[in-house]
């Protein structure tokens, strides 16, 4: 129907259909990005903000925020990996083991926490990991002097907790779509259940893992609330540097340079993801016939 309408209406209709999306991208994505790129070559105005100039100063200065880059580039992948490791068994249980009624309930339960703000949920972890939380209980069984908040560990816990559903859902979908006859075929050819998992289930569901990882990785790269709250200013991410540069020291051009570098890293990871998925024939399913 839609296709036929496009055919008949010709270019006018096509423009009408594509128009809103194109406008959206132009206004909300391309323009701001262009502004950021422009700013990144400028100078800080004396009172803060942006003053026109053309200098590479800001990019040469990136090293001064090296720790933030290092933290982000180390912890975002580690967080993504941990997320995948925790999410996979959960998604597997949901897609393969759980009865249909259970499954729906569990899926809803995974989403429910997201009805409250991220700030609140991370704050809750501050209480759990804080001195009155887990360390207090550990003390009761004789393990003393454990400090959890303001560590990388706490930040990782927060990251995994905060983004788990984004990882669970794509993996769940890929496992749910997995043709159960492939598992029978594998057993028929002599593979025991464990081998079948490693040789069929896992590889066939990897595109789901890749999708979830990309989503989580990109969001983790931009994360600043979790390190700010659970890292207590000791674990500093690019996101925190941006908040600092734009809002505190008002050095917009330097902030812009940091932001542009971050976008480039993200683009590189998207390219890597596309290559991986395409090398597996994309999201293509085995034809039914």
């Amino acid at each position: 129907m839609a296709a036929a309408a496009v055919e008949r209406g010709g270019k006018g209709v096509t423009a009408l259909l594509v128009g809103p999306a194109a406008t959206f991208f132009l206004l909300l994505l391309v323009l701001p990005l262009a502004v950021v790129v422009l700013y990144s070559f400028g100078e800080r105005a004396p009172a803060g903000g942006y003053a026109p100039a053309f200098t590479f100063e800001n990019y040469l200065n990136l090293a001064s925020r090296g720790q933030a880059f290092l933290n982000t580039l180390m912890m975002a992948p580690v967080g993504t990996l941990l997320c995948a490791v925790v999410a996979y068994p959960m998604a597997y249980y949901l897609a393969v083991k759980a009865s249909p009624r259970w499954r729906t309930l569990l899926l809803v339960l995974i989403i429910v926490p997201f009805w409250t703000s991220q700030l609140l949920r991370i704050y809750a972890w501050l209480l759990i990991l804080g001195s009155k939380g887990v360390p207090a209980y550990l003390e009761m069984i004789g393990i003393e002097g454990v400090r959890l908040v303001n560590t990388r560990f706490a930040v990782l816990v927060g990251m995994v907790y905060g983004y788990l559903p984004l990882m669970i859902f794509p993996i769940y979908v890929s496992l749910e779509r997995l043709d159960k006859r492939l598992l029978e075929a594998s057993a028929d050819l002599g593979a025991n259940p464990a081998r079948t998992f490693w040789q069929v289930t896992l590889p066939v569901s990897l595109p789901g893992v890749a999708t979830g990882s990309l989503l989580v990785f990109i969001l983790l790269m931009g994360e600043f609330i979790i390190p700010a709250l659970l890292g207590g200013g000791k674990v500093f991410f690019i996101g925190n540097a941006l908040v600092d540069l734009f809002l505190q020291s008002r050095n917009w051009p330097f902030g812009a340079a940091v932001a542009v570098s971050m976008v480039l890293v993200m683009l590189a990871s998207i390219v890597a993801y596309m290559r991986f998925v395409l090398s597996r024939g994309g999201m293509r399913q085995q034809p039914l016939v």
Partner: peptide, 20 residues
Amino acid sequence: LPAYRRPVNMVFQSYALFPH
């Protein structure tokens, strides 16, 4: 005896070839 220990093999109706 589980399927993976039986000396028989099957050709499935929709073939069930491994897509990966």
